[in-house]
Design a protein around this nucleic acid. Structure first.
Lengths: 224, 224
DNA sequence: AGATTATTTGACTTACTGGTCAACCACGCA
DNA sequence: TGCGTGGTTGACCAGTAAGTCAAATAATCT
């Protein structure tokens, strides 16, 4: 299912003087700070966010942030790594023995739900990519490439067996990725257009149904 | 086709002491600065971009920027308005008499081409939305809402006449919008995944073909 | 309890930022 | 050719940024 995460740990813990220690206070503070940082980063961008504003949001003095994170870059890294971990949970594995329709549907539904329940990480990641992935380590880049290639290969196998129409599998992944992601990243615009204050629970199913229908039928499969 | 742009003119020209003047030097400088600003804004975000960095990129002293744009906010506004003008050209009008398949195809192809030829405005706009549309004036918000509503109504008409499957027209627009936009906004990620240095001319057609196929078939229409 | 280590925090330093200003330059027109 | 407006620019100012530090306090372990 999910790839091992251990090999991605980097500066975060190492940022403090004594490594390995995972005191309760530390753990809680780090999480608190990272949550505050995430929100500030989304609103103001990485460069535009001040440590002070993160401290204010977390209800801590600025120096305390610097106690847990050596510097701003380190904090950014920690937040981005956190996102990749979250991704790991969604980007499950698939096998050639699975049913194409079922896999597509599962992927779309999971991804849409993700956009609704965790919009912040998605927005942050989008911003980072738009700005040229300045903070993403090589690992993160190749990780996604590997993931797409693997899935594409399975899709191709299904096409060879005539289980679905022959379409470019990589762009199919991009299509699903973008259309689902959209509801997190462009939340503001979508709510404005739909003239609503916030998303509601039933939107998740409605949107998932719509996307499943168009995409799956678009691949020459039956739906529902 | 395109809506009148005149009613959207605001701070930009008015930012300078003497209005209305459109000297050649002024025109050229303003464009130069706005191009440089656009690039810097994409890389560093609005808050994260310094006037100095824009000046450097434009090869001008900082004070010169302030001669043409009263302040940073004014420059941001000018850049965003510029983008809306560009949008206007793509978001053409459609009529119930048109052919659904043809309209969808035209829209997708135009939008994909746009993503390839003008990635910067698209990125900038995406960033602005992700960050909560802090700089977008009320006009811009309602403008897009109106546009979507109009198009949705036409789609619904086609569905009533049985010219295409009954799907949610608003989300259909979101789907096309997001999947095409993706190639501009996530350029970096896509190139990494495809292991390429830059897009090539033939990508435009390849991607357009793919999207047209899946989306149009997804709507229960024949393609090609 | 006492020693050791982890955490908190206000004050400080250094660098940079947006914005202003007044002096200066150049171009076109009378 | 010289005058006026538009354009250029270096120097300056006040505010804010990241990051440091050392002293004070709280946990934790033996």
């Amino acid at each position: 299912m999910s790839t091992d995460k251990t090999n991605r740990m980097s500066g975060n813990e190492a940022a403090t003087s004594k490594q390995g220690k995972t005191g309760k206070i530390r753990e809680k503070s780090v999480e608190h700070i990272m949550n505050a940082a995430q929100e500030e980063f989304v609103i103001n961008g990485f460069k535009g966010t001040t440590i002070q504003s993160i401290a204010d949001r977390a209800g801590l003095p600025k120096a305390n942030i610097h106690y847990y994170f050596k510097n701003k870059e380190n904090l950014i890294q920690a937040v981005l790594e956190n996102i990749l971990d979250l991704w790991d949970e969604v980007l499950g594995d698939i096998s050639v023995d699975d049913d194409p329709r079922h896999v597509l549907e599962h992927f779309i539904r999971t991804k849409v739900r993700m956009s609704f329940t965790h919009p912040l990480p998605s927005k942050l990641f989008a911003m980072e990519i738009i700005q040229g992935a300045q903070h993403l380590k090589e690992y993160a880049r190749t990780y996604l490439r590997k993931w797409v290639r693997e899935k594409a290969k399975v899709f191709e196998h299904w096409m060879d067996e005539g289980k679905m129409d022959r379409v470019d599998p990589v762009h199919l992944i991009f299509l699903i990725w973008s259309s689902t992601q959209h509801y997190a990243d462009f939340e503001t615009q979508i709510l404005t257009i739909m003239n609503r204050g916030e998303y509601e629970e039933e939107d998740i199913d409605h949107i998932s149904d719509f996307l499943c229908r168009v995409v799956i039928r678009g691949c020459g499969l039956q739906y529902p």
